[in-house]
Simulated scan of single mutants.
Amino acid sequence: MTDDATPQSLSEKVSAAHIRVPARGNRKLDRLIAAVNGDVQIKAWWHAAAINAERLGMSDHSWVHIQIVTNIGLRLARLLFRRGVVPSVVTDYGLTERDAEVVIAAAALFHCIGMSIHRQDHEQFSLFLTADKLPKMLEPIYDEPTRSIIVAEASHAIISHRSKGAPFTIEGSILRVADALDMAKGRSRVPFEQLLPNIHSLSSYAIESVKISPGREKAVRVEIEMNNSAGIYQVDEGLGTKLRGTPLAEHLEVVARIDAEHEQRLVPVFRL
């Protein structure tokens, strides 16, 4: 038997990545997820991205972040589609909502692999790697020209998650917002506890939970629970910046709350 304290090999660490999402009968989505879970190269890119994030003292960019963003993206999509928001691939190409789910999932699965190369311009590096890998993965799932349309739409979503990405599709907007919604404090634990606190780590650590549910006046309601008012920065500058100006903005309502009586003191003293 292997001692639990025995360090994992590189191969074991990479192989541990396994994405789980509710396909809900979407066979194309199911096949994409299965293909990704069987691809060691993609898992290696995720692992390298996580290592680079650790080197830079950044929030988590491991396969766990990938799984969270993929699931948030699909959750947003299904709530939006249920309320009559039409995906761009349906409007512009006559495809289906299930094809839109594949676009969103593909974009989520590949959006951060460029971090395996460098943080700066990682979205563009993600495009290079996606262009080489995704078409091959989709060959058993889609014929041409649909395959190239799915790749193009997923690539638009990937590049649109950068700081000034300005997505102009529903799917691109969903990926951009889903990435921003992975904000709960578990993601920021390493930079908060190991580095000097700053507004980014403080605001991230102040986010307790994020709940996504059907809205009343709008299609989706996002409720954010904070333990400290520093979290407002994460909500406004993080999520707000990613949401404003996108086709999704009119369909989401965001409510952030804090129990003032139990507000936590995150740092005793802050010095410049």
Rank of each mutant, 00 (worst) to 15 (best):
S188W: 15
A16I: 08
V220D: 00
Q264N: 09
V210Q: 00
R162D: 13
L56S: 02
Y93I: 11
H47K: 07
I224C: 00
T146R: 05
E250C: 03
H111S: 06
I72T: 02
D92V: 09
M226W: 03
V269C: 08
A35P: 03
A35E: 03
R257T: 13
I117F: 05
P87I: 01
W45P: 06
L196Q: 14
A34Y: 14
T130A: 00
L74H: 07
S116P: 12
W63K: 07
I33G: 01
A219H: 11
V103R: 01
R162Y: 10
D143Q: 10
V220G: 00
H156A: 14
A219M: 11
E263G: 09
R75L: 09
P145R: 07
F110D: 08
P214W: 05
R187G: 06
V255D: 13
G73Y: 04
D3S: 14
R162M: 11
H122L: 05
K28E: 07
R55P: 09
V36R: 00
I104L: 00
E144S: 13
L80N: 03
I149P: 10
A34D: 13
A131Q: 13
W46R: 03
A16K: 08
H111M: 07
H18S: 06
R20F: 12
I141N: 11
N227I: 15
S213F: 00
A178W: 13
R216W: 00
S160L: 06
A152H: 04
L266Y: 14
R20Q: 09
V86G: 07
E12M: 06
A107Y: 11
K185Y: 08
E171N: 02
R82L: 09
G186M: 15
V21G: 01
K28P: 07
F125M: 13
W63N: 13
E261W: 10
D3L: 09
Q67M: 03
A184G: 05
Q234L: 04
S148R: 05
N37H: 03
D236Q: 14
A249R: 09
L134P: 11
A105L: 07
A44E: 09
E171D: 02
D182Y: 12
G84E: 09
A166E: 10
N52W: 06
E193K: 06
L266K: 10
E97I: 01
I19W: 01
I42A: 04
M226T: 04
L243T: 00
V21L: 02
L175E: 05
E12P: 04
P135S: 05
P268L: 11
I199G: 07
N198S: 12
A219G: 12
H251D: 05
L10C: 01
L10Q: 02
A53G: 15
P140T: 01
T241M: 10
V235N: 07
I174G: 08
G73H: 04
P22R: 09
A35C: 03
R162L: 10
V269R: 12
T6K: 05
L175H: 02
V90N: 12
S163D: 14
V255Q: 10
A17C: 03
N227D: 15
